[in-house]
């Protein structure tokens, strides 16, 4: 007999993992998609977690801006204060990090703990 519940990778797993990481003594930042405009690959409420060494799990853009978010998250872990990030075609940074889908996203990054 197979398990009663099918395995479903979900946002909850990322949040559970964030707690695990903290309990292992790692410093963790949580990035959350706050708003999207136009075509954006991940819905509002999607999470990415990052540790001080830049290891990450989850996704806020399906890969387009994760690299930049991870850098900012490492900063947030050091500084402590949360930060709002905007990526989009109107923003030069977006070209650089490559939000090729043409959408815009706003991401909130906060330290956990």
């Amino acid at each position: 007999m197979s398990g009663v519940l099918n395995p479903r990778p979900a946002e909850s797993d990322v949040l559970a993992l964030a707690e695990d990481w903290v309990s292992q003594g790692r410093s963790v930042a949580l990035a959350t998609v706050i708003e999207t405009w136009g075509s954006a690959p991940r819905p509002v409420g999607s999470h990415l977690i990052v540790d001080a060494n830049g290891r990450f799990e989850g996704s806020v853009s399906g890969g387009c801006v994760e690299g930049a978010v991870v850098q900012e998250a490492i900063d947030v872990i050091g500084v402590g204060a949360p930060r709002m990030l905007d990526f989009g075609v109107a923003d030069e940074t977006a070209w650089r990090v490559g939000l090729s889908c043409g959408g815009r996203i706003r991401i909130y990054v906060e330290k956990v703990g």
Partner: peptide
């Protein structure tokens, strides 16, 4: 987010309860 709130959120998920995390963006 403080750890106690994250823990409480994860507990509600494990218990199959609906919850909303309210974050003051300022």
């Amino acid at each position: 987010m403080d750890l106690a709130t994250l823990h409480a959120l994860n507990e509600t998920r494990r218990g199959r309860q609906a919850a909303i995390l309210v974050t003051d963006l300022d």
